[in-house]
Amino acid sequence: MFPITSSDYAGLVLRLSLGLMYLSHSILLKFVTYGLDGTAMFFVHVGLPGWLAYMTFVAEAAGGILLVLGIQTRWVALALTPALAGAIIWVHGANGWVFTAPNGGWEYPAFLLAISIVQFLLGDGAFALSRSRTFEFSRG
């Protein structure tokens, strides 16, 4: 057993925070608050196909669970980044920077995109159930 480092704890805190955010965004916002049909109508309103709302809900909910449990964290965090990029491009990008702008600005999804990439780079963190395959950047 390897000793747990401060970087491992940082990865754990980031993983739990990110996982809970995805769970909240999918279950509390898309399912409980707006309902899946309402979310699908919103997707259509912004020019996306309605079926993508259901796919996004499943991806965010499953991804959130996998992140909290620490199952293939790097790859789950990376797989969820297109949804965040899409939220910036199709929903929040034209609203300006501040999220309190009408219909929400793009800094919140941009921040979540950045920390998803950091999670990918940092790795699983402590107490992960299924470690991600590792990789290292070469120093040229």
Rank of each mutant, 00 (worst) to 15 (best):
V58Q: 09
G70A: 03
T56S: 13
V46K: 10
W97H: 01
R74C: 09
V44D: 13
A114I: 03
R74W: 11
G35S: 05
L28C: 12
I65H: 03
Y54A: 06
H92D: 03
T39H: 13
W106C: 00
Q72M: 11
G96L: 05
G63L: 10
M41G: 07
A59R: 07
Y34M: 08
K30R: 15
N95G: 06
A61Y: 06
H92E: 01
G63I: 02
E107W: 00
I115M: 07
A79C: 03
V44H: 14
W106Q: 00
G104S: 08
V68L: 11
L69T: 07
I115T: 13
N95W: 04
F43E: 08
G35Q: 03
D37P: 02
V91P: 00
Y54C: 04
L52C: 05
V46L: 07
A94Y: 10
T100I: 12
I89H: 14
M41W: 09
L112T: 04
T33W: 04
A114C: 02
E107N: 01
R74H: 06
A59N: 14
Y54E: 00
A101V: 04
F43D: 05
G104W: 08
E60H: 12
A114K: 00
A79I: 04
M41R: 15
M55Q: 08
I27C: 11
G63H: 14
A87M: 05
L84Y: 06
V98H: 07
T39P: 14
G96T: 00
E60P: 10
I65A: 03
F99S: 08
W51K: 04
A62I: 15
K30M: 12
M55K: 01
D37Y: 08
I115H: 03
I117F: 06
F99E: 01
I115G: 01
Y108Q: 02
W97R: 01
E107L: 05
S26D: 13
T81M: 14
G47V: 02
A101S: 15
F57Q: 02
L29I: 11
M55V: 13
F31W: 09
G35C: 12
F31C: 12
Y54M: 05
L67R: 11
G104A: 02
M55E: 08
I71N: 10
A79S: 15
V76P: 08
I71V: 14
E60T: 15
A101I: 03
I65T: 06
H45T: 09
W97Y: 13
T73E: 12
A79L: 12
L67C: 08
A83R: 00
Y34L: 15
G47S: 02
L29C: 05
G47H: 03
F111G: 11
V44R: 15
H45D: 14
T100W: 08
L52F: 14
L84M: 15
A87Q: 10
Y108V: 15
A94E: 14
A83H: 12
G104R: 00
L28A: 12
W90G: 02
L69W: 13
Y54I: 01
H45W: 05
I71Y: 07
A62R: 14
D37S: 11
P49V: 03
G38Q: 02
F42Y: 13
T39F: 10
V46T: 11
A83E: 04
A62P: 05
